[in-house]
């Protein structure tokens, strides 16, 4: 019983994180049909912001992290992605890949390849123990942050005019534009939201890891991408569901795999994703007509 509860707690934590990464990727993909590898660069930039603002009060650090991530997301959209908007999705994929590599080399060049460590908040290192169940406080923080962000995003999308315009653009961009929805503004907004999600990811990841490297966030985005693919890249609900499914599957594999195979958990996960993609390419990724700008 306790092992089950413990596994559930871990799966929830992992799933929440994956959902957070997946949402950032799906947000941009839904609007632009761009698989944004550079989402990892946003998380990395957030991480370094936290490192370099270590002396400031926590609230200021968090605000700065969000500001940096949002600003970088919007700058990348303007400088790198606006120019390839009408290109094939694969060309956009190569571009985002190039941008993420460029920014991680830039970070290495500026801050060095060695990990830079910082403490987000002492709370992140504490934990509760209920009988035999071990619950790090950061897990609780993670789940709360993820739930608040997902809920807030849901409210924004369903209850505000700007959210309605985003949903319309995600379904049929050309028609949305005919009705007066400004393409550039919607796309910028999508990137800005992905920036907020990246900032949250940076805080939670750094809270758990304690240090930042130039490739910080890259694995997170790989898992987020996979989660988003599992849920059907263009759907935000799917991204959240995919995140939790992947989190649970990961946890399950961890527990269930025989000792000899346990190290191959990631290999199995990604092989499964490969199979999923080749078996149901259309079902998962609809390159619907009239959606891209």
């Amino acid at each position: 019983m306790t092992t089950l509860v413990q596994a559930l707690v871990n799966a929830l934590n992992l799933g929440g994180l994956y959902a957070l990464y997946a949402l950032g990727v799906a947000m941009v993909f839904g609007i632009l049909r761009l698989v944004n590898f550079a989402h990892s660069s946003l998380i990395m930039a957030g991480g370094y912001t936290l490192v370099f603002t270590a002396s400031l009060p926590l609230v200021v650090r968090l605000a700065l992290t969000v500001a940096v991530c949002v600003a970088l997301a919007m700058v990348l959209e303007l400088v790198a992605f606006r120019g390839v908007r009408s290109a094939a999705p694969e060309t956009m994929l190569v571009t985002s890949f190039a941008v993420s590599m460029l920014l991680s080399s830039l970070a290495e060049s500026l801050f060095g390849a060695l990990p830079r460590s910082t403490d987000v908040d002492p709370v992140f290192r504490e934990s509760w123990t209920f009988g035999q169940i071990y619950l790090p406080k950061i897990n609780a923080v993670t789940v709360v942050v993820v739930v608040v962000l997902i809920g807030g995003l849901g409210l924004f999308l369903t209850r505000t005019p700007a959210g309605l315009r985003m949903r319309a653009a995600a379904e049929d961009f050309a028609t949305a534009r005919l009705l007066g929805v400004a393409a550039n503004r919607v796309i910028s907004l999508a990137f800005a939201i992905s920036g907020v999600l990246a900032a949250a990811a940076a805080v939670l990841l750094l809270g758990a890891n304690g240090s930042v490297t130039p490739t910080f966030g890259f694995n997170a985005v790989l898992f987020g991408l996979i989660a988003a693919v599992v849920g059907g890249l263009s759907s935000l609900r799917g991204a959240v569901a995919g995140g939790f499914v992947l989190g649970a599957a990961s946890q399950l594999l961890q527990e269930a795999l025989p000792v000899g195979l346990a190290p191959f958990r990631d290999a199995l996960l990604f092989a499964a994703v490969f199979c999923l993609l080749v078996v149901r390419p259309q079902g998962l990724i609809r390159s619907g007509q009239g959606v891209r700008v």
Partner: peptide, 28 residues
């Protein structure tokens, strides 16, 4: 055999997954 049926973005993502899986095997 499976990969050649798909193209475009799905193929791009499938091949990335492949690389990660191979790399994980080599590492473990």
């Amino acid at each position: 055999v499976p990969l050649s049926r798909i193209g475009g973005l799905s193929a791009g993502l499938a091949t990335v997954s492949l690389l990660i899986a191979f790399s994980a095997v080599a590492a473990q």
